[in-house]
Write a protein that binds this DNA or RNA. Structure first.
Lengths: 110, 110
DNA sequence: ACCATAGATCAACTAGAGTTGATTCAAGAC
DNA sequence: GTCTTGAATCAACTCTAGTTGATCTATGGT
């Protein structure tokens, strides 16, 4: 994917970055993200595919959604989740800023 | 800073990425990183500057060091820590891969 | 109406991470 | 040698996050 470098959306606040970092720092949640890589899927499908207890999956989906990595829609009894790649891009932008602020002796951090 | 996109070093393993993500997901540790942005500093300086208990700072420095974000050197009784910006770049590379794997319907994640 | 299903949420529990004050070890001064 | 200082480490404790099985609410079928 072409590297956007600076993201067009407003820069991440620290708290949002923290939520993203924490959400991604859990192997199981990475599995969820990978399972959604091919496109939107319903919870029932993910539960089966990942072999997770329903409440466990719901918990993790909530963390990812609250962090902004997923969005959902309801269709009858079914809830479908899909990825928001822009959240990953936003985090990369945040990391770029962190690196720029703190990676060069010329800059001063207070 | 110029965006390297793909990093020259071997790609991050998941466990290393996890360590980096977790290390950065703590506000206090971000403060440490910012304090080191202007260059190498000794622990005694950081303790005073950040107003932290010595053992508390040591704990957090260890997490950052173990994750690869800091390196240290000893000079007499003094331990100096400095940032390793390449760790941040590596994490950005890892995120770029995550986005590439999982951000496009064309790719398949198993 | 009743029954089944999907999935979020809950409360209790477990596991992991952060904090604290004490201790230990190494370096340095005398 | 003794004493001081810097900083890592320790054990006990506190706090946060993850897990579990049950419950609740909404949707759908008959």
């Amino acid at each position: 994917m072409a590297d956007p470098g600076a993201v067009a959306s407003p820069p991440l606040q620290s708290e949002q970055a923290r939520a993203l970092l924490r959400a991604l720092a859990e192997p199981l949640r990475l599995q969820v993200i990978e399972a959604l890589g091919s496109g939107e899927r319903c919870v029932c499908d993910l539960t089966t595919d990942l072999g997770l207890a329903q409440s466990k999956l719901s918990f993790h989906l909530k963390v990812l959604k609250d962090a902004g990595l997923l969005s959902d829609r309801q269709e009858g009894r079914w809830i479908y989740y899909r990825l928001r790649p822009e959240a990953i891009d936003a985090l990369r932008g945040w990391l770029a800023e962190l690196g720029a602020q703190c990676g060069r002796p010329a800059s001063t951090c207070t």
